[in-house]
Amino acid sequence: MTPSRIFVIAKNVFQEVVRDRILYIIGFYVVILAIAIRALPEFAATTENKVFLDFGMVVMSIITLVVTIFIGTGLINKEVDKRTILVLIAKPVSRSEIISGKFLGLSAVLAVLIAIMTAIYLIFLQLGNIPHSTVSLLIAAVFLFFQLSLIAAVAITFGVFTNSLLAITLSFAVYLMGNITQDLLKLGRLSNNPTMERMTQFLYLILPDLSRLDLKNDAVYGLQALPDATALITDAGYGLLYSAMLLAIAIFIFSRREF
């Protein structure tokens, strides 16, 4: 693979997504936070600080998740539907470079979205005089990026061999299941049913453990002390390794697809 060609594809994806006015979603986030910081105290007068802290992170996660899945599943399908994939593969660019470039372009979009939304979130916390740990929130935002990058790899992989609607459904399913894999494993052990236990162990092995990349609760309710540095590095490496594995699968499938 040639880095320069991958960079060109990633740049085109980034520009195309920005051209589609996806960054206007930031304005939507600002409006939601502005309403919430006024309205939430009416419903939770004694705990509004924690409620707004949690609300801001959850809304950021939901918005970026929707962006990730809907864009990720369409990156390849859109090229196929418009038949522009024929022009793309006719150029001196490999299919692995196409997948890698698409992923890096979407990851760049996510990085920009999360960075800007996190800055806005912190500004609201300052304006509302809401006590918080800035470092913990920043670490949670970084790990949100790792989590969404993994989901982007999931979405691209499904988008390579299924239609957009099915790819979106499967991607959301993986996200939901990935957040409860540890609970599924515990449930299988408690069931005292060997078949159920093997099934939950299988699901735990093949599904991403997204809870390892979710630090929202630590940042909001947690714990002022930072998580152990070794654990952070290990979990980040897990997310990156799983993303690389999914991209390898996507490249393998895409390389054998006929157009």
Rank of each mutant, 00 (worst) to 15 (best):
V13D: 11
Q15K: 13
Q15M: 11
E16W: 07
V18Y: 14
R19K: 09
R19H: 05
D20M: 13
I25T: 12
I25H: 12
I25L: 10
I26F: 04
I26M: 03
G27A: 11
F28G: 14
F28D: 07
Y29I: 00
Y29G: 00
I32T: 04
L33M: 07
L33K: 00
L33G: 01
I35A: 13
A36G: 13
I37A: 04
R38D: 03
P41S: 09
E42I: 04
E42H: 10
A45W: 11
A45C: 02
T47A: 07
E48L: 06
N49E: 01
K50V: 15
K50A: 12
K50D: 15
V51T: 04
F52G: 06
L53D: 02
L53F: 04
F55T: 15
F55G: 15
G56R: 05
G56S: 14
M60G: 06
S61W: 03
I63S: 04
I63A: 06
T64K: 02
V66S: 05
V67K: 08
V67Q: 10
T68R: 00
I69M: 01
F70Q: 12
I71D: 04
G72T: 11
G74S: 12
G74N: 08
V80K: 14
R83F: 00
L86K: 14
V87G: 13
L88G: 08
L88C: 03
A90I: 01
A90S: 14
K91G: 01
P92Y: 04
P92A: 08
S94P: 11
S96G: 15
E97A: 14
E97C: 15
I98T: 07
G101T: 00
F103A: 14
F103R: 08
